[in-house]
């Protein structure tokens, strides 16, 4: 696999220390999570349903409050760095009949950068065009958002996050509810972004994909069970700790292990 290995790669892009978070008035969904991602690194966040994957991502972008802990982006302090993270949420609450085109949606990522009482300028339109180009959706820029396939919709939302001028992307279950073609489309886009040194943290249920296509795995269940390269942490012990009874290890005749996870 082609990788651009530069000096920048050694720089920490995102550092999370002792983060605990949860919805108000409910017990904490995740406690004491610490990890760091290097610039350009691609990490998968895995864990069973209800493990707190979405909660972690939402806490990182500030959608739900976090208690204690620190989030730092490129060495910036956590209170100011939130808006520098690009967040691609799960899309089940989106009204796809809404009268907006693809480029309107991507322009929404610019809202904060444009500022109050101002209209989008040429610079914003250029950045939107660039973002669309990077995810290969430029040709569809005048389509109404609902007229796209599942994979295309995901790519548009990735472009919207890129239009925030961020280099750290958080994606919440982008492979949920899309077919294999769409999944390949999204992976292709992510491969292209890796060449541009974009750091990605992606929550997923797909353990196969997570262990084969990512540099780093974060195994989560309320707390961070393991964090490291797939070769180090994708072990029956770690998975058993995360998934409990929902997984079993099948031993093959020639001593290869097969892990079966029912989630």
């Amino acid at each position: 696999m082609k990788r651009v290995v530069g000096q920048a790669l050694s720089v920490e892009a995102l550092i999370v220390e002792n983060l605990s978070a949860g919805y108000p008035k409910l017990p904490l969904a995740i406690t004491d999570v610490s990890f760091s991602l290097r610039r350009g690194e691609r990490a998968a966040l895995i864990g069973p349903n209800g493990a707190g994957k979405s909660t972690l991502l939402k806490a990182l972008v500030g959608l739900i409050p976090h208690h204690g802990g620190c989030i730092s982006l490129h060495g910036h302090d956590c209170s100011t760095s939130h808006t520098l993270l690009g967040y691609v949420p799960q899309q089940e609450s989106i009204d796809w009949n809404f009268p907006v085109t693809v480029q309107d949606v991507v322009m929404m990522g610019r809202t904060r950068k444009i500022g109050w009482l101002r209209w989008a300028g040429r610079k914003d339109r250029d950045i939107v065009a660039q973002a669309l180009e990077r995810v290969g959706m430029m040709a569809f820029r005048n389509r109404q958002i609902g007229q796209l396939s599942g994979g295309q919709k995901r790519r548009v939302f990735i472009a919207r996050a890129l239009a925030q001028e961020t280099d750290v992307l958080l994606l919440d279950e982008p492979f949920n509810g899309v077919d294999v073609t769409a999944q390949e489309e999204i992976m292709e886009t992510l491969n292209k972004l890796r060449d541009e040194d974009i750091t990605v943290l992606l929550a997923t249920h797909d353990l196969n994909l997570a262990s084969s296509q990512f540099d780093k795995l974060l195994i989560l269940n309320q707390r961070l069970i393991a964090c490291g390269s797939p070769a180090e942490v994708f072990t029956p012990e770690n998975l058993h700790e995360a998934y409990g009874g929902r997984m079993s290890v099948l031993r093959h005749r020639n001593h290869e292990d097969y892990i079966l996870v029912v989630d």
């Binding site: 972008v61 500030g62 939130h82 949420p89 907006v100 949606v105 322009m107 929404m108 809202t111």
Partner: peptide, 22 residues
């Protein structure tokens, strides 16, 4: 007109609006 882009954003995707601290 003054708040068009913000009103459009909160109407379409309130999650993004909140993550942008609007």
């Amino acid at each position: 007109l003054l708040f068009y882009k913000e009103l459009l954003l909160v109407s379409f995707d309130v999650a993004l609006a909140r993550s942008l601290r609007l």
